[in-house]
Protein backbone atom coordinates (compact mmCIF):
# COMPACT_ATOMS: atom_id res chain seq x y z
CA UNK A 1 0.00 0.00 0.00
CA UNK A 2 1.27 3.43 -0.93
CA UNK A 3 0.45 7.04 -0.24
CA UNK A 4 0.05 8.79 -3.60
CA UNK A 5 0.64 12.50 -4.03
CA UNK A 6 -1.11 13.88 -7.09
CA UNK A 7 1.24 16.55 -8.41
CA UNK A 8 -0.62 19.70 -9.38
CA UNK A 9 2.63 21.61 -9.83
CA UNK A 10 3.44 22.88 -6.34
CA UNK A 11 6.94 23.99 -5.40
CA UNK A 12 6.37 21.81 -2.32
CA UNK A 13 5.17 18.56 -3.93
CA UNK A 14 8.54 16.95 -3.35
CA UNK A 15 8.58 18.32 0.22
CA UNK A 16 5.26 16.56 0.88
CA UNK A 17 6.93 13.40 -0.46
CA UNK A 18 9.90 13.90 1.88
CA UNK A 19 7.69 14.53 4.94
CA UNK A 20 5.48 11.50 4.27
CA UNK A 21 8.59 9.35 3.75
CA UNK A 22 10.07 10.65 7.00
CA UNK A 23 6.86 9.65 8.78
CA UNK A 24 7.61 6.08 7.69
CA UNK A 25 5.15 5.59 4.83
CA UNK A 26 5.74 4.23 1.36
CA UNK A 27 5.01 7.23 -0.88
CA UNK A 28 5.04 8.11 -4.56
CA UNK A 29 4.42 11.27 -6.60
CA UNK A 30 2.00 10.79 -9.52
CA UNK A 31 1.27 13.23 -12.36
CA UNK A 32 -2.32 14.48 -12.61
CA UNK A 33 -2.55 12.73 -15.99
CA UNK A 34 -2.36 9.31 -14.24
CA UNK A 35 -5.16 6.79 -14.75
CA UNK A 36 -7.35 5.86 -11.80
CA UNK A 37 -6.29 2.26 -12.37
CA UNK A 38 -2.67 3.16 -11.48
CA UNK A 39 -3.77 4.35 -8.04
CA UNK A 40 -5.63 1.23 -6.95
CA UNK A 41 -3.00 0.36 -4.32
CA UNK A 42 -3.49 3.72 -2.60
CA UNK A 43 -3.67 3.78 1.19
CA UNK A 44 -4.23 7.54 1.12
CA UNK A 45 -4.16 10.30 -1.50
CA UNK A 46 -2.89 13.86 -1.21
CA UNK A 47 -3.58 16.63 -3.74
CA UNK A 48 -0.63 19.01 -3.83
CA UNK A 49 -0.93 22.74 -4.36
CA UNK A 50 -0.04 24.35 -7.67
CA UNK A 51 0.12 27.55 -9.69
CA UNK A 52 -3.16 26.90 -11.53
CA UNK A 53 -6.73 27.83 -10.76
CA UNK A 54 -9.19 25.34 -9.23
CA UNK A 55 -12.08 26.73 -11.27
CA UNK A 56 -10.33 27.24 -14.62
CA UNK A 57 -7.79 24.50 -15.21
CA UNK A 58 -7.97 20.77 -15.84
CA UNK A 59 -6.80 18.55 -13.02
CA UNK A 60 -6.93 15.17 -14.73
CA UNK A 61 -7.54 12.27 -12.42
CA UNK A 62 -8.55 14.36 -9.36
CA UNK A 63 -12.22 14.49 -10.31
CA UNK A 64 -12.39 10.71 -10.80
CA UNK A 65 -10.71 10.14 -7.44
CA UNK A 66 -13.35 12.25 -5.73
CA UNK A 67 -16.20 10.56 -7.64
CA UNK A 68 -14.97 7.14 -6.59
CA UNK A 69 -14.57 8.09 -2.91
CA UNK A 70 -18.02 9.75 -2.99
CA UNK A 71 -19.59 6.60 -4.43
CA UNK A 72 -18.54 4.74 -1.28
CA UNK A 73 -16.53 2.19 -3.29
CA UNK A 74 -13.21 3.51 -2.05
CA UNK A 75 -12.72 4.04 1.66
CA UNK A 76 -9.38 5.87 1.64
CA UNK A 77 -8.50 9.22 3.23
CA UNK A 78 -7.96 12.20 0.94
CA UNK A 79 -6.13 15.42 1.81
CA UNK A 80 -5.97 18.59 -0.28
CA UNK A 81 -3.27 21.19 0.30
CA UNK A 82 -3.44 24.84 -0.87
CA UNK A 83 -4.83 24.72 -4.41
CA UNK A 84 -5.65 21.03 -3.74
CA UNK A 85 -7.88 22.32 -0.92
CA UNK A 86 -9.54 24.80 -3.28
CA UNK A 87 -10.01 22.07 -5.87
CA UNK A 88 -11.84 19.82 -3.39
CA UNK A 89 -14.08 22.75 -2.40
CA UNK A 90 -14.80 23.56 -6.05
CA UNK A 91 -15.52 19.96 -7.09
CA UNK A 92 -17.97 19.58 -4.19
CA UNK A 93 -19.83 22.74 -5.24
CA UNK A 94 -18.20 25.32 -2.98
CA UNK A 95 -17.14 28.78 -4.18
CA UNK A 96 -13.48 29.50 -4.89
CA UNK A 97 -12.43 33.02 -5.85
CA UNK A 98 -9.77 35.69 -5.32
CA UNK A 99 -9.58 36.68 -1.67
CA UNK A 100 -9.82 40.29 -0.44
CA UNK A 101 -6.16 40.09 0.43
CA UNK A 102 -3.41 37.70 -0.60
CA UNK A 103 -1.66 35.70 2.11
CA UNK A 104 2.03 34.91 1.62
CA UNK A 105 4.57 33.76 4.19
CA UNK A 106 3.68 33.64 7.86
CA UNK A 107 0.06 33.46 9.01
CA UNK A 108 -1.68 32.63 12.29
CA UNK A 109 -4.04 29.65 12.15
CA UNK A 110 -6.91 29.62 14.66
CA UNK A 111 -8.55 26.24 15.15
CA UNK A 112 -12.33 26.67 15.42
CA UNK A 113 -13.27 23.08 15.90
CA UNK A 114 -11.30 20.29 17.48
CA UNK A 115 -10.83 17.45 15.09
CA UNK A 116 -8.82 14.31 14.59
CA UNK A 117 -6.38 16.05 12.21
CA UNK A 118 -5.58 18.71 14.83
CA UNK A 119 -4.95 16.18 17.60
CA UNK A 120 -1.92 17.30 19.64
CA UNK A 121 -1.93 20.74 17.98
CA UNK A 122 -2.59 23.94 19.98
CA UNK A 123 -5.63 26.14 19.31
CA UNK A 124 -3.44 28.71 17.57
CA UNK A 125 -0.22 28.22 15.68
CA UNK A 126 1.93 29.84 12.99
CA UNK A 127 1.82 28.39 9.51
CA UNK A 128 3.37 29.15 6.15
CA UNK A 129 0.77 30.10 3.57
CA UNK A 130 0.98 31.08 -0.09
CA UNK A 131 -2.23 31.92 -1.96
CA UNK A 132 -4.50 34.58 -3.44
CA UNK A 133 -7.50 32.43 -4.42
CA UNK A 134 -9.45 31.15 -1.43
CA UNK A 135 -12.46 29.05 -0.49
CA UNK A 136 -15.09 31.76 -0.13
CA UNK A 137 -17.94 29.33 0.61
CA UNK A 138 -17.25 25.79 1.76
CA UNK A 139 -19.40 23.05 0.19
CA UNK A 140 -22.55 21.99 2.11
CA UNK A 141 -21.16 18.60 3.09
CA UNK A 142 -18.10 20.20 4.68
CA UNK A 143 -17.47 21.96 7.97
CA UNK A 144 -14.82 24.60 8.50
CA UNK A 145 -12.19 23.63 11.08
CA UNK A 146 -9.88 26.65 11.13
CA UNK A 147 -9.44 30.24 9.92
CA UNK A 148 -6.76 32.95 9.82
CA UNK A 149 -6.92 36.73 10.01
CA UNK A 150 -7.09 36.93 6.24
CA UNK A 151 -8.91 33.78 5.24
CA UNK A 152 -12.11 32.31 6.72
CA UNK A 153 -11.48 28.74 5.54
CA UNK A 154 -7.97 27.54 6.39
CA UNK A 155 -9.09 23.94 6.99
CA UNK A 156 -12.23 21.92 6.35
CA UNK A 157 -13.48 18.35 6.51
CA UNK A 158 -16.24 16.31 4.95
CA UNK A 159 -18.98 15.48 7.44
CA UNK A 160 -19.10 11.76 6.55
CA UNK A 161 -16.12 10.86 4.41
CA UNK A 162 -12.41 10.91 5.26
CA UNK A 163 -11.78 14.01 3.16
CA UNK A 164 -9.80 16.89 4.65
CA UNK A 165 -8.22 19.96 3.19
CA UNK A 166 -6.01 22.82 4.34
CA UNK A 167 -5.16 26.17 2.79
CA UNK A 168 -1.80 26.40 4.60
CA UNK A 169 1.22 24.16 3.98
CA UNK A 170 1.65 21.51 6.72
CA UNK A 171 4.59 19.99 4.81
CA UNK A 172 7.04 22.89 5.12
CA UNK A 173 9.48 23.34 7.97
CA UNK A 174 8.20 26.79 8.92
CA UNK A 175 4.68 25.54 9.71
CA UNK A 176 4.46 24.71 13.41
CA UNK A 177 3.00 21.23 14.09
CA UNK A 178 2.78 20.56 10.35
CA UNK A 179 4.27 17.10 10.67
CA UNK A 180 1.77 16.28 13.45
CA UNK A 181 -1.11 17.31 11.19
CA UNK A 182 0.16 15.19 8.29
CA UNK A 183 0.81 12.32 10.72
CA UNK A 184 -2.76 12.57 12.05
CA UNK A 185 -4.12 12.43 8.52
CA UNK A 186 -1.94 9.47 7.52
CA UNK A 187 -3.00 7.58 10.67
CA UNK A 188 -6.46 7.40 9.12
CA UNK A 189 -5.06 5.17 6.38
CA UNK A 190 -4.44 2.49 9.01
CA UNK A 191 -8.04 2.36 10.21
Amino acid sequence: MTVYIINLGSQYTHVIWRTVRDLGYSVEIKPKESKLEELKEASAIIFSGGPGSAYKDDFGVCKEIIEKIKSGKWNIPLLGICMGHQLIAYLFGGIVQKGKSAEYGIGRIIVDKEDIIFKGVPKEFNAWISHFDEVETAPKEFEILAHSEVCACEAMKHRNLKIFSVQFHPEVWHTEHGETILGNFLNLSKI
Binding site: N7, G9, Q11, T13, V15, G50, P51, G52
Partner: peptide, 15 residues
Protein backbone atom coordinates in the same frame (compact mmCIF):
# COMPACT_ATOMS: atom_id res chain seq x y z
CA UNK B 1 15.79 19.20 -4.80
CA UNK B 2 15.17 22.96 -4.79
CA UNK B 3 17.35 23.43 -7.93
CA UNK B 4 15.18 21.35 -10.22
CA UNK B 5 11.96 22.21 -8.38
CA UNK B 6 12.43 25.96 -8.89
CA UNK B 7 13.56 25.46 -12.49
CA UNK B 8 10.01 24.42 -13.48
CA UNK B 9 8.57 21.40 -15.29
CA UNK B 10 5.79 18.87 -14.48
CA UNK B 11 3.24 21.67 -14.12
CA UNK B 12 5.48 23.76 -11.86
CA UNK B 13 5.98 27.40 -12.64
CA UNK B 14 9.56 28.38 -13.33
CA UNK B 15 10.70 30.49 -10.36
Amino acid sequence: GPDWIESGGAGRDKI
